[in-house]
């Protein structure tokens, strides 16, 4: 643990960074994401390998529940071919939920383990790194553009960029185009910032609650038993309460990211 409360929060918000400038990477984010991605592949892959049409085991039933949930969400919004969109949505949902769940690990434990391994910083929550959320949302944007071209053709999509929403008139081509570009870019920004903001803020609240640890430790050192008791019980109760509430946010953010991806890609299929 860092020496004082004023150092504690900045310390916990620093990534384990390798390199300088743009061409540097957050090793903690990459490693955590890789581990979670492998966990996802292992979990769903083993269920997929053993999947039978007979009576499913509890594990297979649970995995199928998730798969059917995702498939049902897409069916409600999108009537086209789901063979790629559905696995994309499943990956997004499960990966975001897995990443967000890292926030429930007691905040100092990953840092302690990393410190024991020789790393000064270790942020365990990849979705509180804007690089992660933007990586996913930009990928979604590229898919939206790809599907727009695929569904409407190069001419159709270009035509739509310049003629919607105000109408096909030479004087309106530029305003139309500008508006469409803003609309396109707003999608990944809103996707990424929503998830990043939620998880960053959630993590920060855990850190603020953890600051009570400094308070009760100080009170104990001063012999203030009442202050110690209040600080200690307060920290335990608040951490538990926030963690329980955070479960909702973890699932909700994964769900929102998935549903918005589905909506954006199904919009790309629509003709104006």
């Amino acid at each position: 643990m860092a020496g004082s409360s004023s150092e504690y929060i900045p310390h916990h918000l620093t990534h384990l960074k390798v390199g300088e400038g743009f061409w540097s990477v957050h090793a903690d984010t990459l490693i955590m994401t890789s581990l979670l991605g492998i966990a996802f592949l292992w979990m769903f892959g083993s269920a997929a390998r053993k999947a039978t049409a007979g009576v499913p085991g509890k594990f297979q039933a649970f995995i199928e529940l998730v798969v059917e949930f995702v498939d049902g969400q897409i069916k409600e919004v999108f009537s086209g071919d789901r063979s790629f969109l559905a696995p994309l949505a499943l990956t997004i949902f499960v990966l975001v939920v897995f990443m967000n769940t890292m926030d429930l690990i007691p905040i100092d434990i990953p840092g302690m383990l990393a410190g024991a391994a020789g790393a000064h910083h270790w942020r365990v929550l990849p979705s509180a790194d804007a690089n992660t959320t933007f990586a996913m949302s930009i990928t979604v944007l590229l898919l939206v553009i790809y599907y727009s071209f695929k569904a409407k053709g190069v001419g159709g999509f270009t035509h739509e960029l310049f003629s919607a929403p105000f109408g096909n008139h030479p004087a309106l081509w530029l305003p139309n185009f500008a508006l469409n570009i803003v609309e396109l870019l707003a999608k990944p920004v809103s996707l990424a910032m929503r998830l990043f903001g939620n998880m960053y803020a959630g993590e920060l609240v855990f850190m603020l609650i953890a600051l009570l640890g400094f308070a009760w430790a100080g009170a104990l050192a001063d012999g203030n038993i009442l202050g110690f008791a209040l600080g200690f019980i307060g920290q335990v109760l608040l951490t538990a309460a926030w963690a329980i509430f955070h479960v909702l946010i973890i699932l909700l953010q994964g769900f929102i990211f998935m549903v918005l991806t589905i909506v954006y890609i199904s919009m790309a299929h629509e003709h104006h």
Binding site: T33, L95, N131
Partner: peptide
């Protein structure tokens, strides 16, 4: 702090999606 992590995450995410698309979703 946006840096090359973004590119790594994008590639990793793509691999995950493609793997899910090809090997996980169809049998389930």
């Amino acid at each position: 702090d946006i840096n090359a992590t973004l590119i790594g995450q994008m590639l990793g995410f793509l691999i995950l999606v493609i793997f899910t698309w090809k090997f996980i979703w169809p049998p389930l």
